[in-house]
Structures are given as structure tokens and as C-alpha cells.
């Protein structure tokens, strides 16, 4: 079912006063796709993402996420997506177990289901020794892996990842991407932003935002052909001017 669109965006625009942060962007994301959402700092990525996850109302345009309209059904969107960012993910003062229980509860899972999910998670990530530790005491890499799994607890159709691997060591960064591949293989759509250009190569398709507009959108292979360069880093450097 790779051809079903789970995100459909048409001329989506967000203005703050007379500043247009997101300028009529149009794209769609297919079920199970790993979609890379790239752009320079200040290009409008975060603003666009906020509209898609239902926490910011667009100025104009249309967007459907998991079949729900961002204008009229933003609460339904929130129930059907997972979200994780580098800045906020888990509560440092709760243990790993408490975090899982808390977020499971927030997403409305039954006690039994939470228990089931927790056992599965402990097994898959090898958390046996740290499940009762405070999250604040764990290395960043662990936190990020756990928080990705927590974002998937309620089996959302789409998971949004905002710079999930910033500052993480290279081995953990790769383990993290293996988790992304696995989720995608199970049919979860992954919408991800990153500043690591090698990670852009891991995506099925990549869009690059420049000054509020999507200036390029294709598979990494075709983008490299289009710009006649050998790496996504060079595609990015060719396209993204510094907007300051």
C-alpha cells in the first residue's frame, strides 16, 4: 500500500505579520515512506512541521495528515501521530518505566496494553538494567532511542522526528536509523528533519526548503543527478543560500 498518501499538503502558508515563514508549499508523503524534510536554519521547517502536527493554524492552503484536516480536526491528528524532538522527549525526573506508563496513559492505552508494550520495549532495546533508572541519568543516545519508541507506543500512522540524532554518537546514530527503517518496514510513515547530510541519503525522498518554499523534492539519487553532484551535502550547499 505504498501508494496511499498519508500526508497531503497544498499551498500551505503561514504568515507572522508581514513575514511569510512558510510560502505555499505543496507535497505529499506516502504510507511507509521515510520522508526527509531539510532546510537551513530559519527556512521554515519548524513552522511547517507545527502546522502538520496540529499545534499551529495555517494562514492559508490545505493539509491533511492521516486523513484529518489541519484546520478542523487538529485534535484527531494529535491522536494519530507520534512526535519526538531533540529538545523535548521524556521527563528527566521520571524513570524509564514511569515515562512509558505516563505516555501510554496520555495516548489512552489500557493498563494491560501499556504493560505489554513495556515488556516488548525492554526486550527489544535491552533495557533490563535501566528500566528503573531516572531518564535524566541516562546518556543522550539511550534517551533518544527510548523516546523514539515511546513516540510509537500508540502505533501511530505517522511519526514526526525533529532532529532526533543531534549530538548523538555515531554508533547510536546508526542504531537509531535502523529503528527508523524497521518502523517504516512495518508501515509507519517517518517524517524526519536532520542536519546530518549522510542521513538525508537514508530517506526514500527528500525535500529541501529555502526561504519558506520547497525548492527541491525527489529521491536522493535523482536530486544528485539533477544538481550534478555526488552527495546530498553538495545538493544542499548548492541550493540552500544563507538567509540572513
Amino acid at each position: 500500500m505504498k501508494d496511499t498518501n498519508v500526508i497531503q499538503v497544498e499551498n500551505l502558508t503561514k504568515k507572522f505579520g508581514d513575514f511569510t515563514a512558510v510560502n505555499a508549499i505543496t507535497f505529499e508523503v506516502k504510507k511507509g515512506e521515510i520522508f526527509g524534510f531539510l532546510g537551513a536554519n530559519g527556512a521554515g521547517k519548524t513552522t511547517a512541521m507545527k502546522m502538520l502536527i496540529g499545534i499551529s493554524k495555517p494562514t492559508s492552503g490545505n493539509a491533511k495528515v492521516a486523513d484529518f484536516d489541519v484546520f478542523t480536526n487538529s485534535e484527531d491528528i494529535k491522536k494519530n501521530i507520534g512526535y519526538m524532538s531533540q529538545k523535548f522527549a521524556l521527563y528527566d525526573d521520571l524513570t524509564v518505566k514511569e515515562n512509558i506508563t505516563f505516555f501510554g496513559g496520555i495516548y489512552g492505552l489500557s493498563r494491560k496494553k501499556i504493560e505489554e508494550k513495556r515488556c516488548l520495549l525492554v526486550e527489544e532495546l535491552g533495557l533490563h538494567n535501566i528500566v528503573n533508572e531516572l531518564v535524566g541519568s541516562l546518556p543522550l543516545g539511550w534517551k533518544q532511542k527510548i523516546s523514539f519508541s515511546v513516540a510509537l507506543l500508540h502505533e501511530p500512522k505517522i511519526v514526526f522526528l525533529d532532529e532526533p540524532t543531534g549530538g548523538v554518537d555515531p554508533i547510536t546514530r546508526r542504531q537509531f536509523w535502523e529503528m527508523i527503517y524497521k518502523a517504516s518496514n512495518n508501515g509507519t510513515t517517518v517524517f524526519v528533519t536532520t542536519h546530518y547530510m549522510d542521513e538525508a541519503e537514508y530517506c526514500d525522498r527528500v525535500s529541501i526548503m529555502v526561504e519558506g518554499k520547497i525548492e527541491a523534492l525527489d529521491t536522493p539519487k535523482k536530486l544528485k543527478e539533477q544538481f550534478k553532484v555526488n552527495s546530498m551535502n553538495d545538493v544542499f550547499l548548492k541550493l540552500a543560500r544563507n538567509i540572513e
Binding site: 537551513a40 543531534g166 549530538g167 542536519h195 544542499f236 540552500a240 543560500r241
Partner: peptide, 14 residues
Amino acid sequence: DEPTTGVDPVSRKE
């Protein structure tokens, strides 16, 4: 100390 963390590739290059 980590002057380029979280900074996009263009700004990092500059």
C-alpha cells in the same frame, strides 16, 4: 565549545 551544533550545513561551512 560546539560552535556548530544544530547549525545547518551552509552556515557550518561559513
